[in-house]
Nucleic acid binder design. Structure first.
Lengths: 201, 201
DNA sequence: GTCTATAGCCTGATAGAC
DNA sequence: GTCTATCAGGCTATAGAC
């Protein structure tokens, strides 16, 4: 499920749910206030009762989509006794998290291209700092000689890039059923990272 | 340099150069025909003498930006005697290629989110099939037990994700000067992949 | 090959009734 | 809190002069 909440129509939360979905699909410039209003079931003017302008609505939608993600991602990197167990737990759960919320992933992708400095700083501090520190700590334990910042980026990217490229990979040679599945992605990434970092098996 | 050519103003090639740059920066919906015309130095109506509509201009700009990229990327994966040499050559040159052409990278990122099926098929067949096969072949030589399609994606993603996240990484903990540099990125990726795939060092 | 002018539509946003 | 009506302006695209 893309969004957990299921509020009654007409409320501010429902507007945010609709907005998250539309902004994720076609981006800020690809969605009009009229589009959103129609999907919500109210007039465009009514939207301005809940949000002063389009940008505020967009920022509200971002906050709505990213709420509680910070802790959820952080927790993927924490549990487990050995570094190997923590690595496998992180890969499994981070992969599942990205698979179950495409809207979050798409908003993130869009923000990486279009986000201005202030918006990226906001997202970095309120959403990614906490989980990134957890993944960095795991990186430090896995390979003390490797830059933890770069290794954390690599671990996340290894997982995310398989999702990002899914729309185009279906037209590339060697593709097989299941290449898009969370199970296959996490298995592949675990195998790669285990051998690179733990030198076992 | 983002674009090699440096044609005289007013020509079709100059329109394409300008369009590539603008579409890469703000996306299809973020650029108007008037924007492009102004930067080219002609009226919007004159644009329609060279291209029948906005979408044609966009597709022309894509073809222009992606021209010769296929072979350039393919060649990054070919040379070298041992698989290890080929791996290092691929990582070094692919990283350099992505660093020297941000427009290409941004258009690619945007196409992965917004491209419809026909456009993605076009890009896949005319730009990525050839280099992807070269990288897949390298993957097969590096690790015959690993799915070459997935490994090829992982190798490219490991490099690209460091560029993609550069705008937000500067606000994340542990960042250091040079984390964005091609040299540091390729060193990091080579180290990671060498240990994962060759089990040496 | 480029121009000005314009058609027709969509945009974000507001005014004011209910 | 939602509506209809509307404003001012931007959009793609075209017509027709030069």
């Amino acid at each position: 499920m893309s969004n957990v909440s299921n509020p009654a129509p007409g409320t501010r939360d429902f507007i945010l749910d609709v907005s998250v979905s539309l902004f994720a699909q076609t981006g800020y410039d690809g969605v009009s206030m009229r589009n959103i209003a129609k999907r919500v079931g109210i007039s465009a003017a009514a939207l301005y009762h809940h949000f002063p302008n389009k940008e505020s609505l967009y920022l509200g939608a971002m906050a709505h989509a990213f709420a509680d993600k910070a802790r959820a991602i952080s927790e993927t990197a924490g549990a487990g006794a050995t570094p190997q167990e923590r690595l496998h737990g992180f890969v499994d759960r981070f992969t599942a998290l990205m698979a179950e919320d495409p809207d979050f992933r798409h908003l993130l992708q869009r923000e990486l291209i279009d986000g201005d400095e202030s918006r990226l700083r906001l997202v970095a501090e309120h959403v990614f700092r906490e989980p990134f520190e957890a993944i960095s700590a795991l990186s430090r334990d896995l390979d003390p000689n490797c830059d933890p910042h770069m290794l954390a980026i690599s671990m996340a990217g290894l997982i995310l890039f398989h999702f990002e490229t899914a729309p185009v990979r279906r037209f590339l040679p060697g593709v097989r059923e299941g290449h898009d599945s969370p199970a296959m992605i996490s298995e592949h990434v675990k195998r790669l990272l285990s051998r690179a970092l733990l030198l076992t098996k």
